[in-house]
Amino acid sequence: MVDVIATQHLTIGFGATRVVHRLSFSIAAGEVVALVGESGSGKSTVALSLMGLLGRSASVEGSIHLSRKNGETCDLLTLPERRLRAIRGNDLAMIFQEPMASLDPIYRIGAQITEALAVHRPMPQAALRTEALRLLRSVAIANPEACLSAYPHQLSGGQRQRVMIAIALSCQPRLLIADEPTTALDATIQAQIIDQLRQLRAETGMAVLFITHDLGLVREIADRVLVMYAGRIVESGPTEAVFGAPRMPYTAGLMRSRPRLFAETPVRIEPIPGNVPNPAHLPPGCAFHPRCAHSQPGRCDSGTPEPEACAPGHQVCCLRWREIVA
């Protein structure tokens, strides 16, 4: 499989604060990769950096290699803004948690979809309309004609997110970045959207980077998972491998801290003590050690763990993972 996108030692800072540390990962064509993390883990920053939307205040190092639809491969971090604009919405598309914020309230949905289309795929007005209708149908909007002439506030949250997906898909991107796309939605609507994304992935073969804090959702849709903590990927691997046998105490802790549905006997859930660290004041050594039940003084608080393979494709950042397994 070809990697659609691959980052090498991606490091992002704002001023003196580093929020993402030497992140290396890749996503293959047609693959759904979940980026899991809590607030301040840097997961949304990563998404914005892939889109080149971080703004001037951020300093970004490393590389982000994208293989484009036209076959060329380029490092997004070295491209000028003009060329990035051609890539955004064409090879890369993004949907956000709050679709209302990404839709312009004063334009009709139709105008917003056709605008996105016209930028990257110039075609006559009538064809634009037909294509917009087709896109709305592809995301299962019940009444696409009415939707075209509606304003964003006239749609429900679920419909707005569908429209955002339709806009994102309008140019058949190689990679769709979905930043908490269902967090603001109701459970039954979330189920619809997830179902839709899964179908679209199967039809179009696009890769998806799915950013979320919901472990249950990850297990349902992702082929592979990247667990982030304090700006680092602390565990990564095939979804079932990671959740079936988590090697990093943080991943294991996250799983134990959620009540399980249909639990046989009511079990007391085990919280992870302490708080999510502030990126500006990270603990030395392994950033998780102050909250970790397995941390060893003199070891975990001094050396920064590097990713190690603990099974094929399954990597973990923990100095003690071997001892913990045993």
Partner: peptide, 24 residues
């Protein structure tokens, strides 16, 4: 039934996924 089946974990427990039509 639909609400419970919409919980991602339910599908893994072998529950049939029920996707409700339309919006509230």
């Amino acid at each position: 039934e639909a609400l419970v089946s919409a919980v991602p974990e339910a599908a893994r427990a072998g529950r049939r996924r029920i996707i409700l039509r339309g919006d509230i």
